[in-house]
Design a protein around this nucleic acid. Structure first.
Lengths: 151, 151
DNA sequence: CTGCATCCTGCAAATCATTTGCATCTGGGA
DNA sequence: TCCCAGATGCAAATGATTTGCAGGATGCAG
């Protein structure tokens, strides 16, 4: 499988993840442990359904949704919306704000992480011109991956 | 109201819009005429529901969805996904490819158009580095608008 | 180690946005 | 004006996500 950018800081043990959970005054339950593991071991961003499948019906889909939301609020995962009607989630490393972008293949949905972000100068300019405050952005790239080009 | 970038090329008459529709071998029906009018007169991007409401139940919601898709395929409207689970549509001017971005207020959802796009150089670099072909991007900005800052 | 209040979970039903089947209707060329 | 492919209305189907509720498990207190 395509696996160019494996720079996950979260090759952290589940123990550490559990500790982070505990620090948020949240309980470390079996489903949550499994969900964190799935996110840690799985390919880049995973949808709730994918997480659920990876857990082999160990827990309910609703629990996956609830846990994912909780983890997002706790700053342990980040939600990405690639515009196809499905939310995807990625595990974040400690202190990682998760700001990065993706390059998605239009054909096979392979997702590659983009390390460098575009110049924040534009963000600044947009903020000052419009009068908006705290301007952030969401940026995703789309194209056809090498494999799908030949196929 | 915030109204920095009102540069709609589509101050076109409905007649012209109808002509464009006809050129696509599509029928000019009452619902479609109304939908085009709503998009032309309404604020920036509109969701199917908003369009439907603007039409005061003149036609079915399903028709709005079908028409919007048809218009998108015909290149007359463009779909934008701001990541809140609702698709929004904008009318495009003749020959306009609709490539521009938005600045959305996190509080009141006001949307301002951003005219300038960031450097396509990054797009190029990303393409060559990853081996992907036909790389495009989707970029949206979020912040707090002037009105909401004081409120 | 044990009890217990609290937080979680499973299950099922409810929402929401969007799509689709189907019978009926209509725009516009012949 | 006639006719039919293409449109529409209505209702039901989908798909993703959320929520109500009763029973279950976690982690602190004792």
């Amino acid at each position: 499988m395509g696996d160019a950018h494996h720079h996950k800081p979260q090759l952290a043990g589940l123990g550490e993840l559990a500790a982070r959970l505990r620090n948020c005054a949240r309980r470390v339950t079996e489903p949550r442990r499994e969900i964190l593991r799935a996110l840690r071991d799985g390919a880049h961003p995973m949808s709730p359904k994918q997480v659920h499948q990876a857990l082999h019906d160990t827990c309910d889909l609703a629990t996956v949704y609830r846990s994912l939301h909780m983890l997002e609020a706790a700053g342990m995962v980040k939600r990405f919306d690639l515009g196809d009607g499905v939310r995807r989630f990625e595990l974040l490393g400690e202190g990682d704000d998760g700001h990065h972008h993706h390059l998605v293949c239009k054909r096979c949905d392979t997702v590659v992480e983009i390390d460098d972000c575009f110049t924040p100068a534009l963000e600044q300019r947009i903020a000052s011109r419009s009068g908006f405050a705290g301007v952030t952005h969401r940026l995703e790239f789309f194209g056809t991956c090498p494999a799908c080009q030949t196929a």
